[in-house]
Amino acid sequence: MFFDLLASGIALGSIYGLVALGMVVVYKGARAVNFAHGEIFATAAFVGYLLTANGIGYWGALTLAVLVTTILGILIERGAYRPLANASDLALIIATIAVSFMIKGVVRTSYGTRGDFVAYPPIFSFDPLIIQGVFIQRQHLVLGGVAVVCMVLFGLFFALTRHGKMMQAVSEDKEAAALVGINVRLVFLWIWALGSLLGGLAGVLMAPIILVYPDMGLSILVKSFAAAVLGGFDSLAGAVIGGLLMGIFEQMLSGYAGTMFQDIAGFAVIILVLLVRPSGLFGSKEQTRV
């Protein structure tokens, strides 16, 4: 039982981690908490579903869906983030909440009455791999793999590339960055596009597992946000590790203590961890804004 729970916890945790990663990228690069991120991955899942239902293959649907969310990210930057660049953090948070309402309204209206949910075709069949008697879904392996790869890629990007360093510089001091000739606006546009791209990728990859429905954004978003805060919110590795911890703890507690605790387990851990470490597990002390 232990290893089954551990495997499913890692699987669930990689969903949280991948979603959290998108939020952390936007926070690291643009100092914004994007509460529309849940709607971004829901949009990707829904668009991907519509495309596959209309005969477009898996990879084509994935590419187009991610493209749609990337454009969505750019629109959010132009429509909500840029006008509020100098406003309070609360105003920015409310703006992303407002955007999430708008996207959800559109998704819900175009979702129409397809029933409670629609099933998204998986890349692989649902026959699990059986490793040492533990069941592992191939779809989960893909998710976990993508989460780790994205974490490493973005980590390298921020640390090594010129663009990545530019983004760091901009997020730390906008005016100074502009003074040394960095095109601040373009950098922010990139950040939002990349964050939303990650969200779209997460949406399409997890859709076969969590199924597609108009409200799929909220509960995963809250848990992923919590996971990101657990990890430290400005740490890419923290987001993934926070997500994994959240997933593992959820499954372990519900497996051993009772399934009634599944929904709340992660939040109980958050409270305990934050009481001991007020900046999360890997967060830097001076990063907390708002």
């Binding site: 039982m1 089954d4 997890m206 499954q251 497996g255 399934t259 009634m260 599944q262």
Partner: peptide
């Protein structure tokens, strides 16, 4: 006597407990 919510993304613990 297991519980699941409308939003539960993974029912492995439920299935394991019932199976046990």
């Amino acid at each position: 006597d297991e519980e699941m919510t409308a939003e539960t993304a993974d029912a492995t613990p439920q299935a394991l407990r019932i199976s046990k």
